[in-house]
Amino acid sequence: MPVLEGTELRIVGFLCNWCSYGGADTAGVGRFKQPTDLRIIRVPCSGRIDPLFIVKAMMNGADGVLVSGCHPRDCHYSEGNFYARRRLEIIEKFLPILGYEPERFAYTWVSASEGQRWQEVVTSFTDQIHKLGPAPKILGPQASDTLSVMEAAL
């Protein structure tokens, strides 16, 4: 099903299982109201996130990508979020080269107890994406060919 035309944009979230996914759960338990655009993909650790996931999400039509992990030093796997931080810093600089505004991507740290903070993160990131509007899409009859060429290049 497409996003709700005119009201929603496509926002993909990659959240680590231990902190941020838990934080999003805590926000739910606390009934902290949030915009509905975000769809969350659960990964064990922010260190599991391959920057290509973010690029592929954007190429395939996401309007924004949000990544969230444990606070530095609090990683369930000791150091996964440090690896993540290096990769995410680089991908942030790489997105404009692909033609995407860097503001379409954000990464943050939210712990399992920070439901309120999660609400703030989702709300402000969704606002940010809505201000930018839909991302440029690869459309038309050659879209699938273009995508496979890009895919191969990656």
Binding site: M1, L4, E8, V29, Q34, T36, R39, I40, I41
Partner: peptide, 27 residues
């Protein structure tokens, strides 16, 4: 598919929630 903590408990818009739930189930 987490349609309670990540959907039904964080908003009251039934149409948007249903739509989001379908997405999560597809994923």
């Amino acid at each position: 598919a987490n349609i309670r903590e990540h959907v039904s408990w964080i908003g009251k818009d039934r149409e948007a929630n249903t739509n989001k739930s379908i997405d999560l189930v597809r994923m």
